[in-house]
């Protein structure tokens, strides 16, 4: 018969460890999913939480213990700033969109203008209220393809990585993804050129979260490192574009 007397004490210890904040010294970074390869390089000691920028902003509004917020679009950080939940956002990276098909391109798409055909293709794009989706609609508008999302069968995803999955596994014949994600999945995706003039301005911004007990110094240091030479190198290595040096 196993000794059961220790179980209550064990349970209490477990519960205490689950509630206690892990290593109080670690800075908590809330970062857009597309930064998941960059953040560990730049801030190896930080604790990171990756998700869609909109989800992260929502969690911070609900009091999540973030110290610094790295957003894939200025909108979400500015919204937090307006509510007094974070300092003035600063731009630290840029990105572009890439029009991609599965590597085998089963639908034989060669030009983005083919999306203008009525009844056309199965497309995967970002939802209309997440950064990827907003940028995609801007791009299509600039190409004069504003009605492409009505003319094709369109699945909308809230997460950029889900768009990649849908195209890479052939559910969609084509779609628009961040260039960084195309680069990370080049073996499964084929890029179709899009005129550079149609590219939307995609800026990644960082802001120091304002809340009681926030590790403001740690947050500032993460942002400084992002803008440093080594930070810029890490961003370039992940195929981000860089803003002019501040």
């Amino acid at each position: 018969m196993p000794n059961l007397r220790h179980i209550p004490a064990l349970l209490i210890a477990l519960a205490a460890s689950a509630v206690a904040p892990a290593a109080a010294s670690a800075t908590t970074v809330y970062a857009a999913s597309s930064l998941s390869k960059v953040v560990p390089t730049i801030a190896p000691d930080a604790r990171s939480s990756f998700a869609g920028s909109d989800t992260l902003a929502f969690q911070i509004e609900q009091g999540a213990p973030a110290d610094v917020f790295l957003s894939a679009a200025p909108l979400y950080a500015e919204r937090l700033h307006a509510k007094g939940l974070c300092d003035t956002p600063v731009v630290f990276a840029r990105n572009t969109l890439t029009f991609v098909t599965p590597a085998s391109n089963p639908a034989g798409i060669t030009r983005v203008q083919q999306l203008d055909r009525p009844g056309g293709y199965r497309l995967a794009v970002g939802g209309k209220n997440v950064p990827l989706g907003i940028y995609t609609r801007t791009l299509l508008g600039k190409l004069g393809l504003g009605r492409a999302l009505q003319k094709n069968t369109v699945a909308q995803y809230q997460k950029a990585t889900d768009v990649v999955t849908a195209i890479a596994l052939g559910s969609a014949a084509a779609g628009f993804v961040f260039t960084t994600e195309w680069q990370a999945n080049r073996s499964r995706l084929r890029a179709i050129p899009v005129p550079a003039s149609a590219q939307p301005l995609i800026r990644y911004v960082a802001c120091v979260v304002r809340r009681t007990g926030a590790d403001t110094a740690g947050a500032r240091s993460v942002i400084t490192r992002l803008q440093s030479t080594s930070g810029r190198q890490a961003l370039l290595a992940a195929h981000f574009d860089l803003p002019p040096k501040p």
Partner: peptide
């Protein structure tokens, strides 16, 4: 979401 997609 992943298998069927999210088509309105």
């Amino acid at each position: 979401l992943l298998f069927a997609g999210s088509v309105e």
